[in-house]
Design a protein around this nucleic acid. Structure first.
Lengths: 239, 239
DNA sequence: CGTAGATTACGAACAATGTTCTACAGCTAG
DNA sequence: CTAGCTGTAGAACATTGTTCGTAATCTACG
C-alpha cells in the first residue's frame, strides 16, 4: 500500500493502462480513465493541445461525456496534478542526510513537472489537497522534521520549496513548448547579441555581462541547482 | 531621465491619462493608449476579464482596431509587463547595504505584480527584453555587483530572484482573483480542518502540524519575507 | 488646391474551445 | 416486465482570439 493516491493496485509508472476502454465491449468511462487520457494528451500535444475535445477523442467519445465524471477542466487539472504527485517516491528520513533528501524531493517535483509540460501551470495557485499530494507532502514534512528545524520554519519551507520547483518547471516548459532545442539556443544567441549591442553608457552592466547572463541557458539544470542550493543553505541557517 | 521605458514625460503613476482619445475630436489609437487601457481593464476586471474586446471597449472601438498596433494578446501582455517594469525605481548601489537593497528590489517586483493581478502570469516564461525591463535589470545588476559577488553568481541570482517574486505574486493573485479576503480566510480554515481530520496513522506530520501549516496564510507577506531571507542568505554565502 | 496612394479604423465573420441542453440507451429494483 | 436512474453523446450556445474586406482619414506630391 505504498501509493495512496490511486484506487488501483497496478504499478504506478505507466498511466496508459486503460486508455481505451472502448476496445473491449463496454464503453464505460471513469475518472481514472479520463485522467489517464488527459495525461496522455498533455504529453503528446502539450498544454495548448490539451482540451476537452482532445481528451474525449482519445477515449473515443464526445466532450459532453466527460462532464458526468469531472466538473470541468479545472477539476481535471487538479486530478492530473494529484495523480503525478501520488507517483512520487519519498524516502524514509535520514537525519544525517536531511539536506540532500530535501534537495532530492525538490528535484523530483521539478522533473515530474518537466515530464508533463503544462502541469506546473495547473499547480501554481492551488493548495493541492488530493490524496496523492497530501501523501507526498506528509512524507516531505518528515524529511524537514528530521532536519531539526523549528515548526514555523518547516511550515514556510514546505510551501516555498515546492513553489520554487513548480515555478522553475513552468518557466522551462513554456520554452520547451514554444520552440525546439535548436530554436531555443538560437533565441538565446539573439538575446545575447541584443544585450551586447545595447548602448553601453545607459546599460553598462547588461552589456558587460551579456555573456554571463546568457551563456548557461543551454544547461538550465545548473541554474536550478544553484537556486536550490541558495534555498537549502538559507534553510539550514535557521536551525 | 529617470524613466527610460516610456516615451512620455508625464509622471508614471496614473495610467489613465489618455484612456479615451475619442473624447477629443480624433479617434487616434496608439500602442501606449492600448497598453494604458489594458492595464486599466486588468486592474478593474482581473486576468479573466482582460480580453481584446474589453480593451477595445475601454477605448471606444472594436477589437479589430487593436491589431493594427499590437500583433496579438501575447505581445500586448509583454508590453504591459514592460510598462510596469519601467516604472520601477531602483536606487544607486550602496555596497554597505547591498543585501537590503536587493531585498527591496525583489519586494518591489512582488508588489508591482500584486498591484496588477495576472501580470505575473504573463511574465513567467518570458525573457523580458523591452526597454523598461532592460533598464530595471541593469540597475538591479548594479546592486548585485556592489555586493561583491562573482559574475556567475550574479547571473544566476538575477534570474532566480525575480522568478521567486513573480511566482509568489502569481500564486497570491490567483487567490485574490478567485475569492475575497473573507472567503480566503474561510477556505484556509477549511483546509486546516481537513488536514486535522486526516487519519493520523497515515499522515502523522500533516495532522500534527495542521495549525502551523495554515495559520499564517492571512499574512502571506511573512512567508514571502521568509523565502526572500532564505535566498539572500544563501546568496551572501557565495561571496 | 486637389488627387492618388497608403495607412488606419472597424463591423462582420471565422475558428477554437469550455460548457450545457436534451434525448436516448442500458442496467437495476420492484 | 416496467419504472426510474445512471451514464452517454450529438448538437448547440457563449466566449474569445484573430482575420477579412471595406470605408474613412491622412500624407505626399503635382
Amino acid at each position: 500500500m505504498a501509493f495512496v493516491s490511486s484506487p488501483r493496485d497496478e504499478p504506478p509508472v505507466p498511466p496508459w493502462s486503460k486508455r481505451r476502454p472502448r476496445d473491449s465491449g463496454r464503453p464505460r468511462l471513469s475518472r481514472d480513465a479520463i485522467v489517464d487520457a488527459a495525461l496522455g494528451v498533455l504529453d503528446a500535444a502539450g498544454y495548448d493541445g490539451l482540451n476537452m475535445r482532445a481528451v474525449a477523442d482519445a477515449l473515443g467519445t464526445g466532450p459532453a461525456s466527460l462532464y458526468a465524471h469531472v466538473s470541468g477542466k479545472e477539476e481535471l487539472f487538479g486530478l492530473m496534478v494529484d495523480r503525478v504527485a501520488g507517483e512520487m517516491v519519498v524516502p524514509d528520513p535520514d537525519p544525517e542526510r536531511w539536506q540532500e533528501q530535501v534537495k532530492d524531493f525538490v528535484r523530483a517535483i521539478y522533473r515530474n513537472f518537466l515530464a508533463h509540460p503544462g502541469l506546473a501551470r495547473a499547480n501554481l495557485g492551488t493548495i493541492p489537497t488530493g490524496p496523492g499530494a497530501v501523501a507526498a507532502m506528509d512524507r516531505f514534512l518528515g524529511l524537514l522534521i528530521a532536519g531539526g528545524l523549528p515548526e514555523r520554519v518547516i511550515a514556510y519551507a514546505a510551501d516555498i520549496l515546492p513553489l520554487y520547483a513548480t515555478a522553475y518547471a513552468f518557466e522551462q516548459s513554456v520554452f520547451a513548448e514554444r520552440m525546439t532545442e535548436e530554436e531555443g539556443a538560437e533565441y538565446v544567441r539573439q538575446i545575447h547579441d541584443y544585450f551586447a549591442a545595447l548602448p553601453a553608457d545607459r546599460f553598462p552592466h547588461i552589456t558587460s555581462m551579456a555573456g554571463a547572463l546568457t551563456r548557461d541557458d543551454p544547461q538550465p539544470e545548473a541554474r536550478f541547482e544553484f537556486g536550490l542550493e541558495m534555498l537549502v543553505t538559507g534553510l539550514a541557517a535557521q536551525r
